Simulated scan of single mutants.
Amino acid sequence: MHMSVSVLLVEDNQIMRTLIADAITLLDITVIDCGSAEDAVSVLESSSSIALVMTDIRMLRCMDGLDLAQVIWSRWPALPIIITSGHTTALDGLPANATFLAKPWTIDVLHRAIRAFLPK
């Protein structure tokens, strides 16, 4: 379906990262996964195939998901972002190319959010 584009998945919990990546690949989309926001910035700097970033808010390294979103909005403002968290129920003031998914969400909800941002 979207073989020429990739989703960059940023999640510091390896089990969650694997489960989410598996759910995304059900859409025939390539997933590049990172365990930290710092690693995600490095991937973004070196890859032109990233069409969407999905990031958890809470991560244990220096940068969290909101820090990563701020970097993306300043350096790659057109890049869509799905922000997710099990600790926050809403985020206000997100740009039009960003959305928030409160955990737990279903695979159908995830797929709808991804399809909303990727080219048809």
Rank of each mutant, 00 (worst) to 15 (best):
M1Q: 02
H2I: 09
H2S: 03
S4D: 12
V5I: 11
S6I: 03
V7D: 00
L8R: 09
L9C: 05
V10W: 13
V10H: 05
D12H: 01
D12P: 07
D12I: 11
N13C: 11
Q14I: 14
I15W: 06
M16Q: 14
M16N: 13
L19S: 07
L19M: 09
I20G: 04
A21R: 11
A21P: 11
A21D: 09
A21C: 12
A23S: 10
I24E: 02
I24K: 06
I24S: 01
T25S: 15
L27F: 05
L27C: 05
L27N: 12
T30I: 08
I32E: 15
C34G: 03
G35T: 15
G35K: 10
S36G: 07
S36M: 06
A37F: 09
D39H: 07
V41S: 03
V41G: 00
V41N: 06
S42D: 11
S42G: 03
V43E: 10
V43K: 07
V43T: 11
E45K: 14
E45F: 07
E45Y: 10
S46A: 04
S48L: 13
A51V: 04
A51L: 01
A51E: 11
L52K: 05
M54R: 01
T55Y: 10
T55P: 12
T55L: 08
D56Q: 00
D56H: 01
I57V: 13
I57H: 10
I57Y: 05
I57E: 07
M59S: 01
L60F: 02
L60A: 14
C62N: 13
M63D: 06
D64W: 14
D64S: 04
G65R: 07
L66R: 09
D67I: 07
A69E: 09
Q70V: 14
Q70H: 07
V71H: 15
V71T: 06
I72H: 04
I72M: 08
W73T: 14
S74R: 12
R75K: 15
P77R: 06
P77W: 02
A78H: 13
L79N: 02
I81V: 15
I81S: 02
I83Q: 01
I83M: 00
I83P: 08
T84I: 07
S85G: 14
S85I: 00
S85M: 07
G86D: 00
T88Q: 03
T89I: 09
T89R: 14
A90R: 00
L91M: 00
G93W: 09
G93I: 05
G93R: 10
P95A: 04
P95D: 08
A96E: 12
N97G: 01
T99H: 01
T99A: 15
F100T: 11
F100M: 09
A102R: 06
W105V: 09
W105T: 03
D108G: 10
H111C: 03
R112T: 03
I114T: 06
R115M: 03
R115V: 01
A116C: 06
A116K: 15
P119M: 08
P119K: 08
K120S: 10
